[in-house]
Simulated assay, not measured.
Amino acid sequence: MMDVETGARAAAPPAPEADVKTDASAAAAPPPPPEADADAAWKAPAAMVLVQLFNTGMVLLSKAAIGGGMFVLVLLAYRGIFGAVIILPLVLLLERGKWKEMDWRAAGWIFLNALIGYAVPMSIYFYGLRDTTASYAIIFLNMIPLTTFILSLLLRMEALHIRTMAGSLKVAGVLLSVGGTMIISLYKGEILHLWNPILHLRSEEHVGVARHQLRGTFLLAGSTFMFACWYLIQSKILKVYPYKYWSSMATCLVGGFQTALAGVIVRRDVNAWKIGWDINLLTIVYSGALATAGKYSLNSWAVAKKGPSYPPMFMPLSVVFTVVLGSIFLGDDITVGSLIGTTLVIVGTYIFLWAKANELPKK
């Protein structure tokens, strides 16, 4: 669920009443000492760089595990359940007893939240990752805020304001990012041999990736669309059950059981569910501990210090990290087309997020 937490902050709904009260009390409190501001000045960007490294590691490990034959639904089932276990201490510490306020209506929304925000989009995302490369798949996670913006326009939940500077820059950012993605998909160019990879994928896997690039693109685009739809329903969930740690833990747990049920139906092989001391176990533990709980905690801290528009500004870094580390560790090809397309995606995403951030104070 939390793999796109930074994207959610870009399209997040208005804060519930409890958060408004917190902000009001914070405004009445005395300003923090200068040394606190100095600490936040370097800790906030460092935390956001860590978040993008966590995201990169999750994608690279998942690619290696899936490429090694791990069943996608097994990975998601174990990851969701383990992620819920990791978030449990935060629930007990910060929201103890709030489970009593979860009625059948809230439970129904959490079930829908897990289905639309975890089980379905993560399943098709990982199948798209299997058909493509890590450096290509990570781009679609970065395009979630842009897709959410487009859906908001179509559903008339947001105005474009094309005549303003912010509105024009948002449109330009979307066009650049979409154009960059199309360049990566359709144009390869010369392969740049910059270094020898540490791990070598099997040659037949590279052939399979090339053969299924189009199918993988459709799957990744579908996951991006599903995630965008998920962000648009978050305001409803916050109104029904405004406890973020409980809802996050419940969503991870329910999403894990949803993918487990789908996995049992799709593949009735007991051996597919066995986990040894290998990269599959490392992927599950890493995804639950760092790419879920760790990333969620750091994002929440950064939002409290810098505001909701701050974490998304670092999202394009995950593209750079994945391109470089995917080439070093997995042997993903770096081509002229991928460099041009990646650059356009990064520039377009930054332009869009900058325009979005500068538009927020005016609303």
Results as ranks from 00 to 15, higher is better:
residue 82 F to M: 03
residue 105 R to W: 12
residue 61 L to P: 06
residue 94 L to S: 04
residue 52 Q to R: 06
residue 97 G to E: 09
residue 91 V to H: 08
residue 89 P to W: 12
residue 60 L to Y: 11
residue 61 L to K: 05
residue 49 V to A: 12
residue 58 M to E: 13
residue 51 V to G: 05
residue 38 A to W: 05
residue 74 V to W: 12
residue 77 A to N: 10
residue 53 L to K: 01
residue 95 E to H: 02
residue 114 A to G: 12
residue 51 V to M: 14
residue 113 N to F: 10
residue 59 V to H: 08
residue 101 E to S: 10
residue 63 K to M: 02
residue 45 P to T: 00
residue 68 G to A: 14
residue 86 I to Y: 13
residue 61 L to D: 10
residue 52 Q to C: 06
residue 79 R to P: 02
residue 67 G to L: 08
residue 46 A to K: 13
residue 78 Y to K: 07
residue 91 V to A: 15
residue 63 K to R: 11
residue 52 Q to L: 07
residue 44 A to C: 01
residue 57 G to A: 05
residue 111 F to D: 03
residue 65 A to F: 00
residue 45 P to Q: 11
residue 50 L to N: 06
residue 64 A to F: 09
residue 59 V to Y: 13
residue 66 I to D: 14
residue 91 V to S: 05
residue 45 P to E: 11
residue 113 N to A: 02
residue 98 K to I: 02
residue 111 F to R: 01
residue 110 I to S: 03
residue 85 V to Y: 12
residue 63 K to P: 02
residue 53 L to F: 15
residue 87 I to D: 06
residue 90 L to H: 05
residue 73 L to I: 03
residue 76 L to E: 09
residue 100 K to L: 07
residue 102 M to I: 00
residue 98 K to T: 04
residue 64 A to P: 01
residue 68 G to S: 11
residue 74 V to A: 09
residue 91 V to E: 10
residue 111 F to Q: 10
residue 81 I to F: 14
residue 76 L to W: 11
residue 98 K to R: 14
residue 114 A to N: 09
residue 112 L to W: 15
residue 70 M to Q: 15
residue 100 K to D: 03
residue 84 A to H: 07
residue 44 A to M: 08
residue 79 R to K: 14
residue 92 L to F: 14
residue 67 G to T: 02
residue 97 G to P: 05
residue 85 V to E: 08
residue 80 G to D: 09
residue 108 G to V: 03
residue 38 A to P: 04
residue 105 R to S: 03
residue 112 L to Q: 10
residue 113 N to D: 05
residue 88 L to Y: 11
residue 92 L to E: 00
residue 74 V to N: 13
residue 101 E to N: 03
residue 85 V to M: 15
residue 43 K to P: 01
residue 47 A to D: 10
residue 107 A to R: 13
residue 84 A to L: 06
residue 95 E to T: 00
residue 78 Y to T: 00
residue 62 S to M: 15
residue 96 R to F: 14
residue 78 Y to S: 06
residue 71 F to N: 13
residue 40 A to K: 13
residue 64 A to K: 10
residue 61 L to F: 15
residue 52 Q to H: 06
residue 87 I to T: 02
residue 57 G to I: 04
residue 107 A to Y: 14
residue 88 L to W: 09
residue 108 G to Y: 07
residue 64 A to T: 01
residue 47 A to L: 14
residue 46 A to R: 15
residue 114 A to S: 13
residue 107 A to Q: 02
residue 44 A to R: 04
residue 66 I to R: 04
residue 99 W to E: 12
residue 54 F to G: 01
residue 72 V to R: 03
residue 72 V to D: 06
residue 95 E to L: 10
residue 89 P to M: 10
residue 105 R to C: 00
residue 78 Y to H: 12
residue 55 N to C: 12
residue 44 A to H: 00
residue 54 F to Y: 06
residue 70 M to L: 10
residue 71 F to H: 08
residue 80 G to S: 08
residue 59 V to P: 08
residue 105 R to D: 05
residue 45 P to F: 05
